[in-house]
């Protein structure tokens, strides 16, 4: 059972001179277990879109349902784990343990149940138990982001929704988050992420939703996306396309530098072999 948006529109400051149409007539369906990327320029409406999923914002017209439930219900807040970009803006406890336990306690789970969930979430983000007594504010940006992630995971959500989770992190922090998300997805949780970091995320995305000025301008598999004109691409994919356009017979559907290197070497040896045969 999926997250469904039907003809959804959303305005900020409706009926005032400041009215901004942030989303216009959006239709979207996100299935369980998918890895979805929501792409688009700054101000396109990505953050607005995800806030509709768990009822932080209500649509002005159209309908949002999560597993057939209304997004304002508390159960939806449990099923959808949400992580925002500025992890530091949500941390307020004195230990990492309390921070991760905040969600489960809000939902009224017993002490024992909560503890179990905290340990499980901690493991999911590859922290060891020594982390639990640390002060969240003494951590690095990437570590704070993982604590925030663990806080969301402790509710055992069916959908994990993230807003620019790796923006502003150092390369090590980025990789840790990406690896963690991949693991979470492999365990069956849907991962939906807003991002403009195509370099990091593109290899993981199964489905892509592209938003332009509040409208969905593309929605489909990564393969379909690559066949579409005028869409943002990871730099290395653009380079492979350019190589192909200039007559080097490479496969342009490549998303990482490692793959690109392999592909170029493959073509190189192919060309050398052809030459030798002549």
């Amino acid at each position: 059972m999926p997250i469904i948006l039907e003809n959804v529109s959303f305005f900020y400051s409706k009926n005032t001179p400041l009215e901004t149409a942030a989303l216009k007539d959006v239709n979207l369906r996100i299935e369980k277990g998918e890895f979805v990327g929501i792409l688009g320029e700054k101000g396109a409406g990505k953050s607005t879109l995800i806030k509709l999923f768990n009822g932080l914002l209500r649509p002005d017209s159209g309908k949002v349902t999560v597993d057939e439930l209304a997004p304002s219900s508390k159960e939806v807040k449990r099923r959808i784990g949400m992580v925002f970009q500025q992890a530091a803006d949500q941390l307020f406890c004195r230990t990492v343990y309390e921070e991760i336990a905040f969600g489960p306690l809000n939902f009224g789970y017993s002490k024992k149940e909560t503890e179990e969930r905290v340990f499980e979430a901690l493991e999911a983000v590859s922290f060891d138990r020594s982390m639990l007594l640390r002060d969240p504010f003494s951590l690095s940006g990437g570590e704070m982001q993982r604590v925030a992630l663990a806080g969301a995971l402790a509710l055992r959500p069916e959908y994990l929704v993230l807003d620019e989770p790796i923006t502003g992190l150092d390369p090590g922090g980025k990789k840790e988050i990406l690896d963690t998300l991949k693991k979470i997805k492999d365990q069956g949780t849907a991962v939906i992420t807003v991002t403009h970091n195509l370099k990091g995320f593109f290899p993981l995305l199964e489905r892509i939703v592209l938003i332009r000025e509040g409208r969905i301008s593309f929605q489909g598999s990564r393969k379909e996306y690559l066949e579409t004109e005028n869409v943002p691409l990871p730099p290395v994919t653009s380079m492979m396309r350019e190589l192909k356009a200039r007559g080097v017979p490479v496969n342009p559907a490549i998303f990482t530098v490692e793959e690109a290197l392999e592909e170029i070497l493959r073509v190189k040896s192919l060309l050398e072999k052809e030459k030798a045969e002549k």
């Binding site: 449990r78 949400m82 925002f84 500025q86 905040f102 969600g103 809000n106 806080g151």
Partner: peptide
């Protein structure tokens, strides 16, 4: 931002 983050954790 903080309000949204805490509400998402069921507060």
């Amino acid at each position: 931002r903080t309000k949204a983050a805490q509400a998402s954790r069921g507060m």
